[in-house]
Design a protein around this nucleic acid. Structure first.
Lengths: 167, 167
DNA sequence: CCTGATCGTTGCTATTGACAACGAACTATC
DNA sequence: GATAGTTCGTTGTCAATAGCAACGATCAGG
């Protein structure tokens, strides 16, 4: 399969989706896109520690701390210190956060429903399978490049990163 | 097909891809992700006017103006006033911009190539078809909601937007 | 007890992006 | 061809997004 076409398609889909999602969630409730990510991650995974949340979203811990803090002040999240490790804080959805999460999920699902309406019924199964494959592939690839910093172009599996001739 | 699963998958794929793309292009050349979008759009479409570029990327014209301006100062883009409409400015890639575009494309293609390696050969065609379908669907959906502002929930085609009960 | 690592917070900075206002230029209508 | 409305690009302002460095508190392992 040709990398160029595949890459362009993947980029285009990601860009278009992000763009529409932004308007889609901006429209409903005052939720910004980062808040959206945090809510959906917590909604899916339940209680998380701050560092873990940041890692899952691929965000800096400082930024995550501030974002969580502002959402906690807005009453959407609960921060409670952990008993077993007093460095960490358990972050979970408050009832208001749960409500916002449900609301958000509905808006996003309606959005993807509208997009899906443009795809013929017979092809929807194809898209479903493909998205699942892509999701797995992206996660696998992300996991295989854990912290490339010190490894000079070779990751765990010996797949070379080919990342940067010194431009 | 179930909207919930589809929506979650689509969101996850978009989020993961964006995240990895950010690191992928940050690594090679000092190109930021907006610059990346501008370069790839111009590389694909050739000369564009500023307003058209902004519309294609879904970005505010003010922000687009500034981004283009900084890239022009960096020598990546050329701005030349149009003859037929003296309000507009034609924006195109400079030779340096072309080079950066090629370089960028290669990095992005290598990235998607690495992702694709996690998908069995037999399924790659499926993914390819699905991405094409999704891309078309997203564009169609985006086009069908041109400027919903004044239309109160009904778009051109009579598809209701269902956007926002007053949360 | 000491060393190193991790966790969450905070200060600082840069990027990204929306919105509004503006003057210049175009278009259509009378 | 004067006028009103529209579009175009620029600029100012503001908020959201995000990374980095430093810090004190806490933990884990010798």
């Amino acid at each position: 399969m040709d990398n160029r076409i595949m890459g362009m398609l993947l980029r285009e889909v990601a860009r278009l989706h992000l763009q529409m999602q932004r308007t889609s969630i901006a429209c409903c409730s005052g939720t910004t896109s980062t808040q959206c990510f945090i809510l959906t991650e917590l909604g899916r995974s339940g209680t998380l520690t701050l560092a873990e949340l940041g890692r899952r979203l691929g965000l800096d811990k400082g930024w995550t701390s501030r974002a969580v803090d502002s959402m906690a002040r807005a009453g959407l999240l609960l921060k409670s210190p952990s008993d077993i490790d007093r460095r960490t804080i358990n972050i979970s959805l408050s009832p208001a956060g749960e409500a916002r999460y449900a609301e958000l999920n509905q808006a996003l699902n309606e959005h993807s429903g509208r997009v899906m309406r443009w795809i013929p019924d017979g092809d929807q199964q194809t898209v479903h399978v493909a998205l699942r494959l892509l999701s797995e592939a992206l996660k696998a690839e992300a996991a295989s490049v854990p912290t490339a910093e010190k490894q000079e172009g070779i990751c765990d599996d010996g797949i070379e990163l080919s990342c940067c001739e010194p431009c």
